[in-house]
Design a protein around this nucleic acid. Structure first.
Lengths: 236, 236
DNA sequence: AGGACACCTAGCCATATAGACAGGTAACAG
DNA sequence: CTGTTACCTGTCTATATGGCTAGGTGTCCT
């Protein structure tokens, strides 16, 4: 959909600089993506008081992120995945960026902690995950420089979460399909299986099937719990 | 419904200044309360670029808000009610402040839109309600000055929500009791009525009773919807 | 003393749901 | 061609839930 920049193009920009070993005089160039102005201004303010870091652009939509990465080739993308109504789209975006612009490191600055999203994000090449509510002002600047050097940064508790997730018997990061998400949303709005079935033109059996798969993937046993966990996972 | 602020009280403090007609040279003194650093810095940055507005302090807990109001006597308190794990506490705080420091206007800067909270807040003397995700940078500064002048500021959609709420047959701002909240939390964790009953030592009938009251108060018809709306209302 | 309220209980009944089974289709990649 | 994946359908049963009506207790306020 947007095949703008190929690696060679980027090599033209910084041909002589190995990743993570840039000159100390060149600043870490950051792109901030969040739909919330307050957060953007806040992150910008924090980062710009950090020596060696500069915010080069801001973005508020997934498309704008791609454009901005293409245009500015930032060293670090600080992003909240909740840029549209579909977190999956954000995860895809991360994968796309790590593939096409490997020198741009991605650090997620999330509103909520979601095992589901964290694990999926790590898989797709994201190297930082911090929680807005947990970060201290100075941590943010340090974290940006750390991920630029290719290291992984995780907010407190997140590392444990991932470890725990890896150790659990349940399949990690199992993908939630579009159809499942559709059913889930209707379910959260209080529709019965029958009502969901008729509104998406399938049988009640199918609805139950999807809900059962969702329950397994999220580790829930009742729809109330399902909605709760899905919300925590940022699916709703 | 709001007979809190007596003119005399105000006259004692600034005897010569009619409301909304303060000297253009005195700045609007703002206290920012939010548990999130990024938000605090962001709001501060935005407000300080607004002429006539100055941020005098920040707070991150309910207690700190009271102390800071006491110490600085700000003109406007910009607050996210989600300062602890209990939103109700935040609402009580608002009432306390409007009672004890009537010259301090309160503007809520919320993460999520909750009819429940909005209505309750208005009752307790809050005069502004904006959504973090919706505000534009310049709106925030204007809103602060507007609430200082004693006017009510509501983010787009919120006014309609309140109007709709007032027009609905359902009782608005009905209080959710502690017991109901307790049941709700267990419900959201996927426990059946029977399990909830045994874990709080009541009968299943009682659990159903509480859940039914909750459903009525929040306008839900299924537990999945109940959990969804309760989450949106900041109860979970 | 009377009223308002949180809280608890009981029983009824239709319907919804969880959880398990066994299977079919289409698209797509190795 | 074969395996994988998303998606869809069906049948079965025990249990959970929603919606209702009709009570009880104690506490606190007026």
């Amino acid at each position: 959909m947007n095949d703008l920049v190929r690696p060679e193009t980027r090599a033209d920009i910084r041909p002589d600089v190995p990743l993570g070993r840039r000159s100390p005089h060149s600043k870490t160039r950051v792109l901030v993506a969040d739909r919330n102005v307050i957060i953007r201004i806040g992150v910008r303010a924090i980062l710009e008081r950090t020596p060696g870091v500069a915010v080069v652009a801001e973005a508020t939509t997934y498309d704008a992120v791609l454009d901005a990465v293409d245009e500015h080739g930032p060293d670090v993308l600080v992003i909240d995945l909740d840029l549209g109504d579909d977190t999956t789209r954000g995860l895809q975006l991360c994968e796309e960026i790590t593939n096409r612009y490997p020198q741009t490191k991605i650090m997620i600055l999330a509103s909520a902690l979601s095992e589901f999203v964290v694990v999926d994000a790590m898989r797709r090449g994201v190297t930082g995950y911090l929680l807005k509510d947990d970060v201290k002002a100075d941590e943010l600047g340090k974290a940006v420089k750390t991920v630029q050097d290719g290291e992984v940064v995780m907010g407190k508790g997140i590392g444990n979460l991932v470890a725990h997730s890896l150790g659990s018997n349940r399949e990690i990061g199992e993908h939630v399909t579009d159809r499942e998400l559709e059913v889930l949303k209707l379910c959260s709005r209080g529709l019965s299986n029958k009502q969901i079935a008729s509104s998406i033109y399938v049988t009640e059996s199918t609805v139950k099937f999807h809900l059962q798969n969702l329950s397994r993937k999220l580790g829930a046993h009742r729809r109330a719990e399902l909605v709760h966990k899905a919300t925590a996972a940022g699916l709703l």
